[in-house]
Every structure is written in C-alpha cells, then in structure tokens.
Design a protein around this nucleic acid. Structure first.
Lengths: 202, 202
DNA sequence: GTCTATAGCCAGATAGAC
DNA sequence: GTCTATCTGGCTATAGAC
C-alpha cells in the first residue's frame, strides 16, 4: 500500500463522503429523482465543489456502483474463505447480504434504460472489471451448485446469475417493509427462500 | 351498452391511440425519460391537443395503468372460466401472460418512488378499484393454492401476491432478451418456472 | 379541438473571485 | 478546492389564433 500525502488523504475522505451520500440518495430516490443539488447539500459542500471531484451526475452514480461492487467482491471473498459449505450455500449467503443491504437503504439501483448512464458505466474500467470479476466468481458457484444437484441443471447459468443479481433491486422487500407488518428478518427469509427454492429443480 | 354519438366515438378512438402510445413509451423508456413531446409526436398530434385530453403527464401514465389493469382483469376472468384446473395453474397462467406482455414491450412500469405520480394514482378511483379487484381475486387463488398444498402455507398471501406482481417489472427477462441467445418462449418458461417453483414449499 | 408559439421552471453544468 | 452567482437546455404546461 502506497503512502498518501496529507492532501491526498483529505481528498479521499471527502470523496468517500460524497459517494456515501450518493449511495444513500440513489437507494432512496433513484437516479432520475436524485438531484446534484441534494447531493451537495447532503455532503455539506457547494455544487461547484462537487463538480471538481466528479465531472457529471452519471460519474457520481458510477462511483456508487463501483463501491457496491467492491463490497460485493469482499463478501464473495469472505464466503470463499469459509470451509465446509456448499456452493449453493455460498450463493445464498451473498444473495442474503444483497437483500439486507437493500432493506437497510444502502443498495443503489439504477434505471437500465437511461442511455447516458449506460454509456458512462460501459466506459468505466473499474466498474466493468469488477462486474466481470464478481460475475465470474458467482458463475463458478452456480456451475458447481448445478453439479451438486442443488440448482436445476436445465437452467443456463446466465439465467441463475441474473436472477440472483435481480434480488438486489427487487421491489418486493420494499413493499413488504412499507406495509410495516413484518420484521426485516422475516422479509429477507421469505424473499430469499422463494428465490433460492425457485432455482432448485423439481 | 350506451349509444355514443359520432363525436364521442372519435374522441374515444383518439384517446385510445394516445394511451397506446403512452403504454409503449412507458414500457420502453419509463416515466421519467418519457416526454410529453414524444407522446404527441408518436400519436401525430400537437402537444397542446394532448393536454385537452389529459391534464398532465401523470394522468397519461395513470390512464395507461388503468388499461393494463383492465386487461389483467380480463385475463383473470378468462382463467376463472376454465373448468378443471387448479388455483395454482390459474395463477401461473396470469403470471405467464404478464411476462409475455413485458417481453413484447407492452407492460408499462412506473417508478414507485415518484411522489407526484403516487398522488395521481392514489387519487384515481378507476385505478384503485381495479387494483383492489384484481388483488382480491388473485388473493383468493393464492389461499386456495395454499390449501391445495401447491404454495407454501407458511408464506403470507401478501408475499405471494407481491412476488407475482413483481414479475411484471422483473429486469431478468429484458436482460436475457438483450443477450439475444434465447427465444422469448424459453425466457418466459425459465423465469416463470423459477418464480412458481419458489412459491411451493420444500 | 387543433395548431404555433411561448411562458415558466428546474436541474445539470460552469465562470470567476478568493 | 471552495465558494456565489449565473448560464443553458430541456421539459411541463398554457395562451391565443383559427
């Protein structure tokens, strides 16, 4: 790890605070309804200062996605390090984490239709590398789980991967939470259960 | 059925064309990225004329949602009329229809966070009545399917209902279709299968 | 009811002093 | 790098002639 000058450390901390705000606002309101003014106000700096750190609203969103993927990658590492559990159980654990993140308002979700946003993400090396890395590692677990008979072997691994990814932006947990009748733990258990059971064959 | 004057018929046809355009654009780009100018251009009339029919962009979206619910209600009727099939099979058929609608670009999806849109929908009697009607009828099937042992009895019916509704805006079919490697029928079968299997107990 | 033209507003982005 | 003040474009909605 390289030494950073004091100035660089301050910069890091500030940008980290910005990404934290963006992350929360993206989870709360989504990309289109989030305004750069709000982000600036939330961080406590002027909008023009924000633009010294990130060149566009899209870049802010991309930074938030990169951080989420970094955290996801860390969770994947963590599950890989646990001995004596099946690939299916590892996959379940990562999916559970994603659902918990979403319920606690820390999972940003972006509209897949926005083209300027797509362009930004497709031009972001860090984002693409992390996405491929996480996808590959989850893909290995999926194939293994199919060999173990825990996931329906007739499903293309791609379908399983997307199904798991989609839990991170599933509207069901949010609706159930809004109803106020169930605990977060119940919600996670039900949604996770229906998801993972659906992947097993019959 | 009441006789309509010629003028009223022309009005109906025009408004129907408007709703058709809105429906397609909502499915394609979502509410925030859809502009009223686009809708007017797509219908082939001036924007000001559009505002003579519908008082706001939100009202346009609400009209599209009302039509979708009317069609859903018709599908529910149709399934109710079929003799000799289980409640679970009826529920599966309606869910399949929703997935097919989505894949063919005819299922509008609205952001649940937009507050002005929420207000419009909550103030729309037709929308609310249809939503309750459809929910109640699906709810009966769900309870029946649980009694039949086809759906896990430990799941609150509300969870099952939301899970089924959520398939109408699931991003997975769109991603698989964008990949271009599978037919629409395969995609529907896989997504429907993982969804319905997930609702069964173990 | 349809059009052209425009008002009014809001949000993303920037200029320029410090 | 931070600020205040401002520019700019695009979008919803409306005025007013026909």
């Amino acid at each position: 790890m390289s030494r950073l000058s004091f100035r660089e450390q301050v910069l890091r901390v500030r940008e980290d605070a910005i990404v934290t705000s963006v992350n929360r606002l993206l989870a709360e309101k989504g990309f289109d309804l989030m305004t750069v003014d709000e982000v600036a106000a939330d961080v406590g700096i002027a909008k023009a200062s924000l633009y010294k750190h990130f060149p566009s609203k899209e870049a802010l969103a991309a930074a938030a996605m990169v951080r989420v993927l970094q955290r996801t990658s860390a969770i994947v590492d963590q599950q890989s390090a646990i001995a004596g559990i099946s690939a299916f159980e590892r996959l379940r654990a990562v999916t559970r984490w994603a659902l918990e993140q979403q319920l606690s308002g820390e999972m940003p979700s972006l509209p897949s239709q926005n083209s300027s946003l797509r362009a930004e993400l497709l031009g972001n090396r860090s984002y693409l590398d992390l996405l491929v890395q996480v996808s590959d590692r989850l893909g290995e677990w999926i194939v293994q789980a199919q060999q173990d008979g825990d996931i329906d072997g007739a499903l293309p691994p791609e379908v399983v991967l997307y199904t798991v990814f989609a839990r991170a932006c599933d509207p069901v947990p949010g609706f159930l939470k809004a109803g106020g009748r169930y605990t977060d733990e119940q919600i996670v258990d039900w949604v996770l259960g229906t998801c993972m059971n659906g992947l097993r064959g019959r």
